[in-house]
């Protein structure tokens, strides 16, 4: 079953993440895909995540499809102007990638090429609008018509935890007004703040037009917790999480982190308007099925790669 079918059927959707390798080894994608296959509706293939050079998300998405996992191709505004962005969106349609996720992207300052030019010709909201116009009206940002239209679903992201918090629901509302059909969030470690954000989305009518997937993931060591707290922009790890992880013996931190992730999935699933979860388990893909199983999420029906592709 595809992500689109899960949304249409109103079934709790599950996505995960596949980070492409730094290198040309296709097996690196295949290995991760095999760990996730049958457990997720789709997996994001990241676009030079953290501004570090990797295999492209387009190639990674093709490899994931070959390995039987439906991709969500991430595409950022960081490295491409509007010509290259639209070209990659058309290419994604041509090879049958069924979902794209459009983001601003981390600034190159934090990557492995801090000397690179930051592009940011469009912002993420403008890219969402451009993608929808491309797909639904068959025209480029220039107004020029394209031939065959791509058929992907259009996704966006939001971080409910970053200031100004009062604006975060409205920011997603803008992206949905621009054409986003689903959204994934930054890691949810503070369920109460997330629930308040969801309530605001419901008030704005956003959840009627957009499927919201809560971002979750296990913190499996104190080192990772520290990294998330201080090394990654925009992640909010509340004190309560730190207390729990520090409160167990060193050899049980990983288990406790996984347990907390399971609990978070169960808690967000109970919030009205939450359409699913997006599990980010950097380097712990093998643990994703176990986390889902413990959270009471059953394996997905068999993925069929038929019918993916052009919407006509």
């Amino acid at each position: 079953m595809s992500l689109r079918e899960a949304f249409d059927a109103g079934r709790f959707a599950v996505t995960a993440e596949i980070g492409p390798p730094r290198g040309a080894d296709p097996e690196a994608i295949t290995r991760k895909a095999e760990l996730l296959r049958g457990w997720v509706d789709a997996a994001n293939v990241t676009d030079n995540q953290g501004a570090h050079v990797r295999m492209s998300s387009l190639a990674g998405s093709v490899l994931a499809m070959r390995a039987g996992v439906e991709p969500v191709m991430q595409l950022t505004c960081r490295d491409r102007n509007r010509i290259a962005l639209q070209s990659d969106l058309i290419s994604a349609g041509a090879v049958g990638i069924p979902n794209v996720l459009l983001l601003s992207g981390d600034h190159p300052r934090f990557g492995d090429h801090p000397d690179a030019a930051p592009v940011f010709d469009l912002d993420s909201t403008q890219l969402v609008r451009t993608a929808r116009t491309l797909r639904d009206e068959g025209v480029l940002a220039s107004g020029r018509e394209i031939g065959t239209r791509p058929g992907w679903l259009v996704g966006a992201v939001e971080n409910p935890f970053a200031p100004p918090r009062s604006f975060r629901a409205r920011r997603l509302a803008k992206k949905v007004a621009a054409g986003a059909e689903f959204a994934q969030t930054q890691y949810v470690f503070d369920v109460e703040v997330f629930a308040a954000w969801m309530a605001r989305l419901r008030d704005l009518g956003v959840t009627e037009g957009c499927k919201v997937l809560a971002g979750v993931g296990p913190i499996r060591s104190l080192r990772v917790m520290e990294f998330l707290r201080s090394g990654v922009p925009g992640i909010h790890v509340p004190d309560e999480v730190e207390r729990r992880l520090r409160g167990v013996p060193a050899d049980r931190v990983a288990d406790e982190g996984v347990t907390m992730c399971v609990e978070t999935i169960q808690r967000v699933a109970a919030i009205p308007g939450v359409a699913g979860v997006h599990v980010m388990a950097f380097g712990y893909e093998r643990g994703v099925p176990g986390i889902l199983e413990r959270a009471g999420i059953t394996p997905r029906p068999a993925v069929s790669m038929e019918g993916l592709g052009h919407a006509g």
Partner: peptide
């Protein structure tokens, strides 16, 4: 990032630019 439609998700808890 020259964003014209609102802040990115990297704003620090104190409101600082990423």
């Amino acid at each position: 990032k020259q964003l014209r439609n609102g802040p990115c998700g990297g704003v620090s808890p104190t409101g600082a630019c990423e």
